[in-house]
């Protein structure tokens, strides 16, 4: 038994475009996501990173290979793999509290435990004052906090995030990234995060899986050694560390190589 929360084994995905045409989006990808770690999928657009994440969630089916979570092959979506999307997914007709309780409610968690857990995760993402507000009263960053709390309160083994902060402005994005470090430390949740933002990748990742494009393959697995196995809690600290610039430059080179020949 390995200590992997999630194993991606030789996974390929071919999309049918109709009229006998198809495109190979992901080609024989394999890597592990260690338990309680943050794994970042990084790569240029068109590298199939979102497709890989969606296959982990069970929202797409691999054409070949398999994804294994806790010894079981992923067959479809399930509560053991919670997902946060880039687009806002708050249920507008429910208050923040009822949004966060949603997963527990449909899974039959008793009302008392539901309320208690919801309060805890609302507090974790700093929305206690807004627990009774409707999502439409909240800013974009706060709505993503709701989505994160709702997913975590449901108790998934893995938290999957598809460019979760892509729609936010810069300073909100930093705060959200720092929040994720805090959440990872406090909840020991295994996370897989898709991004094309290099700084975000370096800040969040215990391991970066860099994907090449057309079709998506694992180009390189990178552990940010300069962090010396420690997560860094704030971004000023991160960018002033020795080794940060070297890694960012390396990732930029990889991006440029992959982006070559494309606009």
């Amino acid at each position: 038994m390995t200590d992997a929360a999630l194993e991606i084994r030789a996974v390929s995905k071919r999309f049918d475009l109709g009229r006998g045409k198809s495109v190979l989006a992901v080609d024989g990808i394999g890597f592990d996501v260690a338990r309680n770690s943050i794994c970042v999928l990084l790569g240029p657009s068109g590298c199939g990173k979102s497709t890989v994440l969606r296959m982990m969630a069970g929202l797409e089916t691999p054409t070949a290979g398999e994804i294994v979570i806790g010894g079981r092959t992923v067959q479809g979506p399930g509560r053991d793999r919670g997902m946060v999307f880039q687009a806002y997914t708050s249920f507008d007709w429910l208050s923040v509290r009822r949004n966060v309780e949603f997963g527990m409610k449909i899974n039959g968690v008793a009302p008392d435990e539901r309320r208690e857990r919801a309060a805890r995760f609302i507090d974790l993402v700093g929305l206690t004052k807004f627990a009774d507000a409707y999502p439409s009263q909240l800013s974009g960053g706060m709505r993503q906090r709701v989505a994160i709390a709702r997913t975590l309160a449901n108790g998934p083994e893995v938290l999957l995030m598809d460019e979760p902060f892509g729609a936010l402005d810069a300073e909100t994005r930093w705060l959200m990234q720092e929040l994720m470090i805090d959440v990872a430390e406090k909840t020991s949740t295994t996370m897989v995060i898709v991004t094309h933002d290099l700084e975000e990748a370096i800040f969040l990742a215990d391991k970066i899986v860099f994907l090449s494009s057309h079709p998506g393959r694992v180009k390189q697995e990178i552990v940010p050694e300069f962090k010396q196995g420690q997560r860094i809690a704030d971004k000023e600290d991160l960018v002033s560390r020795d080794g940060y610039g070297t890694l960012e430059a390396h990732l930029m080179r990889l991006m440029r190589e992959e982006g070559r020949g494309q606009p």
Partner: peptide, 9 residues
């Protein structure tokens, strides 16, 4: 919204 609900179980 549908996919969020599916991944919540």
């Amino acid at each position: 919204l549908v996919e969020t609900a599916l991944t919540l179980g």
